[in-house]
Amino acid sequence: MKRTLAAAALAFTVAAAPAAPFRTEAPEEAQVREIGAKLRCPVCQSENILDSQSGTAREMIAVLREQLALGRSEAEILGYFRSRYGDYVLLSPPASGFGGVIWLVPPLLLAAAGAVYILLVRRNAEAARRAGQASQPRAPLDEQSLRRLEL
């Protein structure tokens, strides 16, 4: 009995599988994900609105869908949220204004570190060259110097 049931269940599963078509995503969902990933949830600080479980983030996704349906561009939608929550709502800071400073600092620091490194290497090389010169054999100490040093 058990076997028959299992076989029937298997047969049904196999038969039913191709009948259930894959649900295809609405075309604008890709855009929802793309833009949503750039928006920071204002309530939870370091999550984007897609990952966040908060009600505010869900409502923001609803707003995002509505605006896409109205044919708004990504820039317009980001601008909409920025006018309400400021640059805070963008997960990557804009490259203009104060945000530009944030983008500039790492390359500047890298360049400064490189400059210091090169300077130190050069200085060391110079010191090594001098040391090489200094260790050239010299004339042995004369009688007077030896006596002065009490050797």
């Binding site: 204002p42 009600g55 505010t56 409502e59 609803a62 707003v63 309400r84 929550y85």
Partner: peptide, 13 residues
Amino acid sequence: TRGRLGIDFGVYG
């Protein structure tokens, strides 16, 4: 109820 006006005001807490 849905917090839509809250978004307009930039409410977060």
